[in-house]
């Protein structure tokens, strides 16, 4: 039995230590924003925050995340929309939407590290998050807009 905190709520899950966090979130806890894309950290669709850092949840195994604080897209705005989510809507970024939860979590991580990113910064940091709909131009625009909203702080 493992304990973990997801979006501020403590949960106990009875799973094998090797089970990826992504499985725990989706199949055990019914939290479905992180998506299964590749299972090998090549697409970024499963990205969540673990103790505040963006991590591919398909690679984080239960034994390693027990006791840690997990945040998924459902809670990044603390009850309202996060500025990145607002910018995402304003720029109509999602098309099929499958990769977008991971994209937004990664974009939040980018803005924590680089509050006013250049196009190159965005391309470098977001390169591990793939979008088959090709929304990269919109992602870039939304990240610039979110940086403005957040005051570059």
């Amino acid at each position: 039995m493992f304990e973990l905190t997801v979006n501020g709520t403590k949960h106990q899950v009875d799973v094998v230590p090797e089970m990826p966090l992504l499985w725990v979130l989706r199949d055990e806890l019914g939290i479905t924003s992180p998506k299964y894309g590749c299972g090998i950290a090549q697409c970024g669709a499963c990205t969540v925050q673990i103790d505040g850092a963006a991590v591919r949840s398909c690679q984080a195994r239960m034994a390693d995340v027990a006791g840690k604080a997990i945040t998924t897209l459902e809670a990044v705005g603390n009850g309202k929309l996060h500025p990145v989510q607002e910018a995402w809507i304003e720029h109509q970024v999602p098309q099929c939407g499958y990769c977008q939860a991971g994209q937004i979590i990664q974009a939040i991580a980018l803005l924590k590290t680089i509050p006013k990113p250049s196009d190159k910064d965005i391309d470098v940091v977001m390169s591990g998050n793939l979008c088959r709909c090709g929304t990269y131009e919109r992602i870039r625009g939304a990240i610039h807009a979110a940086a403005e909203k957040m005051g570059g702080k």
Binding site: I40, V55, Q59, A109, G128
Partner: peptide
Amino acid sequence: GAETVPCSTCHVTSKLPNPPAPAPLH
């Protein structure tokens, strides 16, 4: 990778056995 994407975003810190290729090493 602190300046851009930390290595541990994908190469998660773990003492469990490494998964089969092509998943990242830990």
